[in-house]
Structures are given as C-alpha cells and as structure tokens.
C-alpha cells in the first residue's frame, strides 16, 4: 500500500512540520558556524501545496532561481532539494565569500562551489535531524547545482511527487543575519516506497 501526502491528517502533518523545524534549526546553527556570525531563524512554514502553485512562491515559473539537489539513499531513497531565489543566493555568496556581487551572472566557479557547500550543509543538517528522529539511516550524495527557471527546476521534485499525487511537501525557512534575511525552500522528496517507511518510523502509521 502506498500513502499519499494528501491523505495525511493533522497529527501526521504536525510531525513533518516539527522535523522541518528541528532540521531548519540545525541548519541555522551550521550556517552560523560557517559564517562565524549569529544567525537567527524564523519559524519555518511547512505546507502541503498543489505543485501548480509552488512556482508562484518563487516569483513565477520563469523566474531565475538556484536549485541544489542531493540524492538520498539508505533506509529511505529519494531526493532533497534546496531552492533559493537569486537575490538570496547572492546575499549568501556575498556573506560567505566577503564579496559585493550585484548579479548572479558574476558568480565564479568558486562562488558556485561555496553555494553548493551551503546547500550540502543545510540539507545535511536537515537530514541528520530526520535520521535521528526516525532512527533510519539516511545518506546524502554530493550536491548538484543548477541555475534556471523556477518551473524547470521544480519539475524534478514535482514529477517524483506526481507519481503519488498532485501536491508537494514544502518547507520554507528564513534565516536572518544582521540586516539580511535569506529565505530558502526545502523539498523532501521520498520515492514512492519510502513514504510508508518514513511514516512508520515516525509512528504516524502502523
């Protein structure tokens, strides 16, 4: 039997939200260490959304965004994706590399690599909270990064979710450092078989 995220009840959603919360908290701590600055975090918004509506949250389907994708393997398989609007990607790179770039087109190989590393750390923190809460072994791959239209990047998680329903599990996290706010979006994309495993491990289904 496969369970669809549309059919999750309030309690099950709360569990997923709490994981989002803890994961984002760990990610903020990791980011603070990396930047050597105090990083605050707003309470993440966890939503189950129709994927038709997701591009609107990222400034429209043809808005230029950065997507970082990691393959996950172990007791559950699937993907985790971290998406950033270009203005936030630029703020992160500027903070990390001590630059003052005005345009994403100015990113060097090194800047892209730094951004990948941020994606790696954030996704890693999120996965490690998921892993310790569920006692499941979850291993992320090295990250892959692409800069393109929001709709095109989103097609990757949307297609995977599309096999089981018309919605995605979407976690929006805002990190605050001094005057800057950086809003990032996580998508946890378990494959069809991993849903059950994940929800069983969380104790929400028997």
């Amino acid at each position: 039997m496969t369970i669809s995220i549309e059919k999750l009840n309030e309690l099950q959603l709360d569990v997923l939200k709490e994981i989002g919360n803890i994961g984002a908290g760990n990610a903020a701590t990791a980011l603070a260490k990396l930047l050597n600055k105090k990083v605050d975090m707003a309470v993440p918004k966890v939503q189950i959304l129709e994927f038709k509506k997701v591009p609107d949250l990222l400034g429209g389907a043809d808005n230029l965004v950065v997507g970082i994708l990691l393959n996950i393997t172990g007791d559950i398989n699937g993907y985790i994706m971290f998406m950033l609007e270009q203005k936030y990607a630029r703020i992160l790179v500027n903070m990390l590399m001590g630059k003052e770039l005005k345009d994403i087109c100015e990113f060097s190989e090194m800047d892209i690599s730094a951004l990948k590393e941020i994606g790696n750390i954030l996704a890693g923190s999120y996965l490690s909270s998921l892993s310790s809460l569920t006692m499941l072994n979850i291993f992320p791959s090295i990250p892959d990064l692409t800069v393109d239209m929001a709709g095109a990047i989103l097609s990757v998680p949307a297609i995977e979710f599309g096999k089981v329903g018309d919605t995605v599990l979407f976690i929006e996290t805002a990190f605050l450092e001094h005057d800057y706010a950086v809003v990032g979006n996580f998508f946890l994309i378990p494959d069809v078989e991993s849903y059950d495993i994940l929800l069983k491990a969380l104790g929400v289904i028997s």
Binding site: F51, K52, P55, G60, A61, D62, D148, M149, A150, G151, A152, I153, L154, S155, V156, A158, I159, G162, D166
Partner: peptide, 23 residues
C-alpha cells in the same frame, strides 16, 4: 497552461506554458 494542465485557443490568442524542465 500550468504544470500537468492543458488548454486550447483560437486565433489570435497565444497559448503559453512557463518553465518546462523535464516536463
């Protein structure tokens, strides 16, 4: 036309879909 969506149109209308990736 959105993702997982379809529609028709007649002259002089323009049909558009934004951000095709693997779709």
């Amino acid at each position: 036309v959105g993702m997982a969506d379809l529609n028709i149109a007649k002259c002089p209308e323009i049909l558009t879909t934004l951000g095709l990736g693997s779709c």
